[in-house]
Amino acid sequence: MDKRFSGRRIVVTGAGRGLGFSYAERLCREGASVIIAEIDPALGSEAEASLKARGLDARFVQVDISSESSVAEMARIAREGCDGIDGLVTNAGWANGVGGKTYDELTTEVWDRMMAINVRGTWLTVRAIAPMMRDGGSIVTVSSDTIYWGAPRLLHYVTSKSAIVGMTRSLARELGERMIRVNCLLPGLTVGEATKGIPEERWNDYAQKQLLKRKQMPDDVDGVVAFLMSDDSKFITGQTLAVDGGFSMH
């Protein structure tokens, strides 16, 4: 595989499993030195060991993205041994087991936790890493295609992911003067740890509404992240890109 990211350091949050790990693995395979920023020490260590066993350059750093001090420490460690960061994927967020409650059944505690992790956490991560980035770097924020069709019983989640799109556009304007690109990825329903509990009938219903009628796999998405990290997208910024087999079109 082409080593187009050789010599580049990229931070991927929530990279201990699922799509986050898939992004980290793809970037490593293309030559990047990847920081696996993960809250769960067991998952983070396992992800690091898995990649290193294949001769890939990865390092696990524990982080709670909702904590200002934790994010600052992660950023400090990520910068060690290099003169700057080249890329950031803000994949970490709260998604597992968040559905099932209607708008009037949600508690303020659950709502606030969702915003603290998905919205504040994304902002804190960018705020800590962007000043360390080399000019011309790339940031990929991660939202969800649910913002286009308004998934029911997921109001807090959809709202948090909608906020990330707006955040991306403002960040793109602010960081553009340093030629740092900021784009937003919107994955659709994807096979992985976060979707293990979804009933088969929902998978089938989703697939029938896609233009490409099959289940979405992690490798359907990680190539898009690599594209947005690469020089092939060097004049693309402030954009949202849904990767969901045509379930949504915008």
Rank of each mutant, 00 (worst) to 15 (best):
G20P: 03
T195D: 03
T146C: 08
I35T: 04
M249P: 01
A194V: 05
S230D: 08
T237C: 11
A37Y: 09
V34S: 03
A72L: 13
D112K: 04
V243I: 14
V110M: 14
M179C: 13
F227I: 05
R79H: 14
P187D: 05
E46C: 15
S162G: 15
V63E: 02
G238P: 10
S66A: 14
R214W: 08
R113M: 04
K101N: 09
L171F: 07
S70W: 10
E201V: 14
L171S: 00
K52T: 13
K101G: 03
G166V: 05
V71L: 07
R17C: 00
W203P: 01
S170N: 14
R127P: 15
Y157E: 02
M114K: 12
F5H: 04
L211E: 10
L212C: 14
I35D: 04
D145R: 02
D205A: 14
G14V: 00
T190W: 04
A128P: 02
S144W: 04
A226L: 08
V71A: 06
V61K: 00
W149E: 12
R54E: 14
A58K: 02
D231V: 12
G188W: 01
I36K: 03
I77R: 05
A58Y: 01
K161Y: 03
G7D: 09
L241D: 00
L56H: 11
V225C: 01
I147Q: 02
S170A: 13
G81E: 12
T168V: 03
I117F: 08
V225D: 00
I139E: 01
Q210E: 14
L51F: 06
